[in-house]
Amino acid sequence: MPPLPLEGAAEAGVKIAVRAVGKVFPSGADSVQALADISLDVYDGEFLCLLGPSGCGKTTLLRVMAQLERPSSGVIEMRHDDPSRPLSAVVFQDYSVFPWKTIRDNVIFPLLQTGMRRARAREVADHWLAQLDLAGFERAYPDTVSGGMKQRVAIARALAVQPELLLMDEPLAALDAQLRLLLQEKLLALWQANQNTVVFVTHSIDEALLLGDRIAVMSARPGRIATVIDVPFERPRHPDEIRASPDFAALRDEIWHRLRRELQPA
């Protein structure tokens, strides 16, 4: 890895260094500036939330980190420590679980791509399915189970390869409010047990506060990092206690006012 070009990048513990990243999508004769001059550090083992209104480019930023898109300008450096583990795995918003594979085979698929034997992959898959309370559904097809279960399959599929970096693109956005609360708790417990580095895209302030160590608030058109907020809650966190605390309400208000300014034309 070459040394990072810009100031502050050499700091220890930086897992992802985003430097002056821009992304332009051509659209007919015009072009849309999705990201403009994004600079951001993600530290080892932290849970970073990208928060912003829809269309602010947060998903685009995540897709660039996942190497599904390339930046139009700037550079992203990602440190890969352990060559035996994949650098990153992605949990997509929805419709990413293969309907033609059973729930077990969905989780086995990425394991096979890492060169694992099928028998071993099956054991690993069943372990992670059990972690996400899907034991007993291994042989079911995804379209025969609920949306919440499908999304848990997507999460198990990403966790099973034990990536150094977990990239999550609004994994809970398609779920109803109650299921969402339950899965947030599940994610919190899993993260506290595994301590991966996580980048989590969301448009929900509550979700970002509950899960994140830091929140990068983005503004729209073009997408920029408006501010980065440190979340003060201690770990391990208990969702109900946090939601009830006065700090939570105060922070939520603060972020909401900031977002509101971004959303309203001046």
Partner: peptide, 14 residues
Amino acid sequence: SPRYGDVGRSCGAS
């Protein structure tokens, strides 16, 4: 759906 292709690419599928 290109989304399935994204899953494949993010898993490094050949």
